[in-house]
Design a binder for these strands. Structure first.
Length: 592
RNA sequence: GGCCCCGUGGCGCAACUGAAUAGCGCAUCAGAUUUCGGCUCUGAGGGUUACAGGUUUGAAUCCUGUCGGGGUCACCA
């Protein structure tokens, strides 16, 4: 219950009594800094319901509110804007409520609420995770946490693309050139090892193409007929037929890769509740296609392939089953979605965290499921995000021009280390604690940098220059948190007393207002699937706090009650930073 | 070419989904701080929100068109 909700009914009643009209929604906004007041009602929209001069309407409403509402101590009118001044008592009361609410803003999981599944990461098993995955992981994890904070049970999931020609390429190259190398024998992470052989495959493939062309084959033919590629395709067929050797090699290499992924996920601080594997799900959906064929959602072409016609919806025709009866990407996704809703009867909606190059795919997927008559299909969301580009151009894992996830994390930690060492403040820390802190700061910088941007927008990432520690950054916010902890450590008096009556400074009011707004921000972020809203809120809060910190004494105040209140505010700001960052997947240090 | 996304001071981002003089950070310049951590704070300069129309009392936001950037139109996943 915030001030707007509190006032809304009074305003509606007021308009009814004063002008005999029903106003359906009242539009509130923050009063701009250059005007007097805390909260503003925009009167212009009322003109649709009553004729009259906006200034007069606002004035009359102002009088009414001052008279009939305890929260409003004063008002003024500028054009059609009714600026309300909220009483100090209300602020103190509201602040007290925040202090007395355990975990203000975070709702406990409510069993009556429906659950949400968030899918993210979903890697291929032939190469290590890279910068693009980092954005995906951070977004998916954070959105899942944010939704959970609104009281819904959330299942985090990934679908691991563990089968297909890509993994066969790695397998084949390892078989040919690997000399029995293992992660143990080389000391390499398993995903790196597999990735190296994927690159190796591509090199060999290119060599073979070149030599075929030299012998007079056309480029197109060469690309299709290079022996190593034919061999890889052959391997995929053997895998699908269940050939023992192939399957056991596949299992072995995938295990290596999973171990590597787990390490990266752990470093990154993300996790999953359930994993799905493409090798188990790629056949799913075939029965659904058969059913859809019967009731006319799909149709069969002469060659036996099955399609859906979406031209009426302004889209194309889309294949859902190959002529030879094998499944395509879409078949699998149809099946997997249905299976998930079967496996989790409490599930209400499903969020797919996937790059925007797949916008079309998900549009079609959702449409197909709707056409098949699944009511939950209207609760499927594609959390689409823009690419992460490098100054040098696009990342290509085949060519090895990627920013590797593990390396980037190490690089960030190194940067944090060199900056922290200059600053000191860590005398009492052991080396181990220091290392942990450097990681907290380095990862904090990286995560915040990526999450503060609207997911839809693409990011140009310059690993050398992009990460800043000043301004709107993770470390800046972490620094403020650490400083607040320092104040609280020094506060050697009891500051638990409730302050009821005291004239408030404008900065105190602004902070209380912002603290109150935390809850709404979480809901907004969840609704928009956008951690960026929460990240920018946190920055605003911190900036406002720093401004108070700089200009007003906290512990040094002579008035005991002021001292108590400001310590309480500091405490609450600290808590809010911590909670908010937790939802973003970012740690916060006690000292730095 | 069809469809989708993006275009905001030199650079990087905001704007509660239609409201007051479009905010913030970096960079630049000028200041503050005997005191709670100077990775701080205060202030200045810098924008016709790509362009052209339209709707509206009111548009960065909605509609139409143009230009620029990206994506996608695979019986790959």
């Amino acid at each position: 219950m915030n001030i707007q909700n509190t006032l809304e009914n009074t305003v509606i009643d007021g308009m009814k009594i004063l002008f005999e009209v029903d106003i359906p929604v009242i539009e509130f906004q923050e009063t701009r800094k250059e005007f007097e007041g805390d909260l503003t009602i925009v009167v212009f929209p009322f003109l649709k319901f009553i004729k009259g001069n906006p200034f007069e309407i606002a004035s009359k409403l102002g009088d009414f509110l001052k008279e009939n509402s305890n929260e409003i101590s004063d008002f003024n009118v500028v054009k059609g804007f009714l600026n309300l001044t909220i009483s100090d008592e209300y602020y103190l009361h509201s602040f007290d409520r925040i202090n007395n609410t355990k975990n203000y803003g975070i709702k406990k999981i409510d069993k009556n609420e429906k659950s949400v599944m968030v899918e993210y990461s979903s890697p291929n098993t032939n190469k290590p995770l890279h910068l693009g995955h980092i954005r995906n992981n951070l977004l998916g994890y954070s959105v899942a946490e944010i939704i959970a904070a609104t009281g819904k049970k959330v299942y985090k999931t990934q679908i691991i693309n563990d089968r297909g020609i890509h993994i066969c390429k790695s397998m084949l190259a390892w078989q040919r050139f690997g000399n029995g190398e293992t992660p143990e024998s080389t000391g390499l992470k398993g995903d790196k090892l597999a990735g190296n052989y994927y690159v190796k495959f591509d090199e060999e493939y290119k060599k073979e193409i070149a030599s075929l062309i030299a012998k007079g084959t056309s480029e197109e033919e060469a690309k299709k007929n290079a022996p190593i590629l034919v061999e890889a395709q052959n391997m995929l067929r053997k895998w699908e037929a269940g050939d023992e050797n192939t399957v056991s090699l596949w299992k072995k290499m995938n295990q290596w890769v999973y171990k590597g992924f787990d390490k990266t996920y752990e470093e990154l601080g993300v996790n999953f509740d359930i994993n799905y594997y493409e090798s188990n799900t790629y056949i799913l959906g075939k029965n659904i296609v058969a059913e859809g064929l019967k009731n006319g959602v799909f149709y069969k072409k002469e060659d036996g392939s099955v399609w859906i016609d979406l031209t009426e919806e302004g889209l194309d025709e889309k294949i859902v089953l190959r002529a030879d009866g094998t499944a395509v990407y879409m078949t699998q996704d149809i099946g997997t979605a249905i299976q998930r809703f079967k496996e989790f009867p409490d599930l209400d909606s499903l969020v797919y965290t996937v790059g925007n190059e797949q916008d079309y795919h998900f549009k079609v997927l959702i449409l197909i499921l709707k056409k098949l008559g699944y009511t939950w299909a209207q609760h499927l969301y594609h959390l689409s995000y823009g690419m992460v580009d490098l100054p040098s151009g696009k990342m290509k894992s085949r060519e090895g021009t990627v920013v590797d996830a593990d390396e980037l994390i190490i690089e960030m930690t190194d940067t944090a280390r060199s900056i922290s060492q200059e600053l000191g403040k860590l005398e009492s820390y052991t080396d181990k604690e220091k290392e942990k802190l450097y990681k907290t700061i380095g990862l904090g910088a990286l995560k915040y940098y990526i999450l503060k941007v609207d997911p839809k927008k693409r990011i140009l990432f310059d690993p050398k220059e992009s990460i800043d520690f000043n301004g709107n950054t993770g470390p800046f916010i972490q620094y403020t948190y650490a400083r607040i902890q320092s104040i609280l450590r020094k506060a050697d008096f009891d500051y638990s007393k409730k302050i009821i009556n005291m004239p408030l400074h404008q900065k105190e009011k602004t902070l209380i207002k912002l603290l109150e707004y935390f809850k709404e921000t979480i809901y907004n972020s969840a609704l928009n699937l956008s951690p960026a809203l929460l990240a920018n809120y946190t920055y605003d809060l911190v900036k406002e706090y720093n401004s108070l910190y700089q200009s007003l004494p906290i512990l040094g105040n002579e008035n005991l009650e002021k001292k108590i209140l400001r310590t309480q505010i500091s405490n609450q700001v600290g808590k809010t930073i911590k909670k908010s960052f937790k939802l973003l997947g970012i740690d916060v240090p006690e000292r730095m």
